[in-house]
Simulated assay, not measured.
Amino acid sequence: MSDGAALSYVLFFGVITVLLVRSREVPWWVAVLIGLFGFYLGQTPAFFMISELVSWVFDRFAV
């Protein structure tokens, strides 16, 4: 699958997730987990940026 196709799928499912959260069908924290799972599963070009962000957040909260 090309990067462009993978990115369009990510955007499509991201919009669906946002619509579900706005309709109160899915709590916000579940939507975050869905998004992170999708990025890690698909490993799109945005994977590296998201991975760095998640690593930074976990490093900040780890004692």
Rank of each mutant, 00 (worst) to 15 (best):
M1S: 01
M1F: 13
M1C: 08
M1L: 10
S2I: 12
D3F: 11
G4S: 08
G4C: 01
A5D: 07
A6P: 03
L7A: 02
L7P: 05
L7Q: 02
Y9V: 13
Y9I: 11
V10N: 11
V10Y: 04
L11T: 14
F12K: 15
F13V: 08
G14N: 09
G14D: 02
V15L: 01
V15Y: 10
I16V: 03
I16P: 04
I16G: 02
T17M: 09
V18W: 08
V18I: 12
V18D: 04
L19F: 12
L19P: 07
L19K: 15
L19Y: 12
V21L: 01
V21P: 02
V21M: 08
R22L: 15
S23V: 05
R24W: 02
R24L: 00
R24Q: 00
V26Q: 02
V26Y: 08
P27L: 05
P27N: 01
W28N: 03
W28T: 05
W29C: 04
V30D: 00
A31D: 00
A31G: 13
A31M: 06
A31Y: 00
A31L: 03
V32C: 05
L33Q: 01
I34Q: 01
I34V: 08
I34T: 09
I34H: 01
L36G: 03
L36A: 05
L36K: 01
L36I: 05
L36Q: 05
F37G: 15
F37S: 11
F39D: 12
F39E: 13
Y40D: 06
Y40V: 10
Y40Q: 12
Y40T: 13
Y40C: 08
L41V: 13
L41P: 05
L41E: 08
G42I: 10
G42E: 15
Q43P: 10
Q43V: 05
Q43G: 06
P45N: 04
F47K: 01
F47Q: 02
F47N: 07
F48L: 14
F48T: 10
I50N: 12
I50T: 10
S51C: 15
S51H: 09
L53W: 04
V54M: 09
V54E: 07
S55F: 15
W56M: 14
W56V: 14
V57R: 13
V57Y: 14
V57W: 12
V57S: 12
F58W: 13
F58D: 06
F58L: 12
D59W: 15
D59Y: 11
R60S: 12
R60M: 10
F61W: 11
F61P: 06
A62W: 13
A62F: 11
V63I: 13
